[in-house]
């Protein structure tokens, strides 16, 4: 395992509070995920890849921004692994870096339509940028 990867894996585990070793690899998270088709790496892969320390690959993936935080995987996991927390932790690892915000404030006006509620803006800003 690459050293920075190993450090980052530990960081992800610490931030998320998730123990990927609890996973029994049943794939229920990916069976239930509504954003599955949008993702390059699926929820069960997040768990497996964090366990194996493949953090850089995850950090480079658009999958990070496809999670809906709907908590279906969290709710239904028989081992209480909470994959969504891993997705969030890896995403934070990216957007906490300088200049790595996925969504920038200046992009917002273009995305707005008349009906969009504050809730959507705040959520997106919280999820996609720091």
């Amino acid at each position: 395992m690459h050293d920075t990867n190993k450090d980052m894996a530990e960081q992800v585990i610490r931030m998320s509070g998730v123990n990927p070793r609890k996973c029994m690899k049943c794939g229920k998270c990916s069976g239930t995920c509504p954003a599955y088709d949008e993702m390059e790496y699926h929820p069960h892969q997040f768990v497996a890849m964090v366990e194996k320390g493949r953090i850089e690959e995850l950090m480079a993936s658009k999958s990070l921004y496809k999670c809906l935080s709907c908590f279906a995987c969290v709710e239904r996991c028989p081992r209480n692994v909470e994959p969504a927390k891993l997705v969030e932790a890896v995403r934070l690892l990216v957007i906490r870096q300088q200049g790595k915000n996925y969504l920038k404030a200046e992009d917002l006006p273009a995305l707005l339509d008349e009906k969009i509620p504050q809730q959507a803006l705040v959520s997106a800003m919280r999820k996609y940028s720091k």
Binding site: P34, A35, D37, E38, Y65, K66, L68, S69, C70, A72, Y102, L103, L111, I116, A120, L121, S123, A124, K127, Y128
Partner: peptide, 18 residues
Amino acid sequence: ECCGGYIAMDDKAAAQKQ
């Protein structure tokens, strides 16, 4: 099920699918 949530900001098609 999820309505698509904030993903509508980034990927409208994904939200529409939901």
